[in-house]
Amino acid sequence: MFNPHLLRSFSALIQAGSFTRAADMLGITQAAVSQHLRQLEQQTGTLILRAKRPLELTPEGQALREYCLELEQANKRLQHRLNDKVNEGGEISLITPGSIGLRIYPLLLTLQQSQPEFTIRHSFAPDVDVIAALLNNRFEIGLVTQKPDDARLTAHKFTEEPLELLLPAGFVLSCWQDLQSLGFINHPDGNAMATRLLSRCFPGNPGIQSLPVSGFINHIGLIPEPVSRGLGFTVLPRYARLAFPRQHLLQVNSSSVNVVDTLWLVHRAEWPLTHRAERALTWLRQHLEDEVNPSLATSSAIYR
Score class of each variant (00 low, 15 high):
F233G: 00
I217H: 12
S214Y: 05
R229M: 11
R238P: 00
G230T: 09
L236V: 04
L231H: 03
P237A: 02
P203D: 13
N218T: 12
H219I: 07
P203E: 13
G232M: 10
L231R: 02
V235P: 05
L236F: 09
N205K: 07
P224Y: 08
I220S: 12
S210H: 09
S214H: 14
L211P: 04
F233H: 01
G221W: 01
L231A: 09
G215E: 08
S210F: 02
R229I: 00
G232A: 14
N218I: 01
N218R: 13
G221Q: 14
V213H: 10
T234I: 07
I220M: 15
Q209I: 04
I223F: 09
F216E: 11
P206K: 10
G207Q: 11
I223W: 04
L222T: 05
I220V: 15
L211A: 08
I208F: 06
L236Y: 06
I217D: 13
F216M: 07
Q209E: 12
L236Q: 06
L236E: 03
P226G: 08
H219S: 10
R238A: 07
S214P: 00
S228Y: 06
L222G: 07
G232P: 03
L231S: 02
V235C: 14
G204W: 03
V235K: 05
G230S: 12
P224W: 04
I208P: 03
P206E: 15
F233S: 00
P237G: 03
I220R: 04
I217K: 06
G207P: 12
I208M: 11
P226D: 08
P206H: 05
P226T: 05
P224C: 09
H219V: 08
R238I: 01
I208D: 04
S210E: 12
S210C: 13
H219Q: 14
I223L: 09
Q209N: 14
I220T: 14
G221C: 02
V235T: 09
G232C: 12
L222C: 06
E225P: 00
I217T: 15
P212H: 03
L236M: 15
G230H: 13
P206T: 12
G204T: 08
P226W: 09
H219P: 00
V213A: 13
V213W: 05
S228F: 06
I223Q: 01
N205L: 06
N218V: 01
L211R: 01
N205C: 11
Q209H: 13
G215Q: 10
H219K: 10
H219Y: 07
R238M: 04
N205M: 07
G230F: 10
F233C: 02
R238S: 11
G232I: 05
S214E: 03
P206D: 14
I208L: 14
V235W: 01
V235F: 06
R238W: 07
G204Y: 04
L236I: 05
L231D: 00
G215D: 10
L211T: 03
L236P: 01
S228R: 05
R238T: 07
I217F: 13
V213I: 15
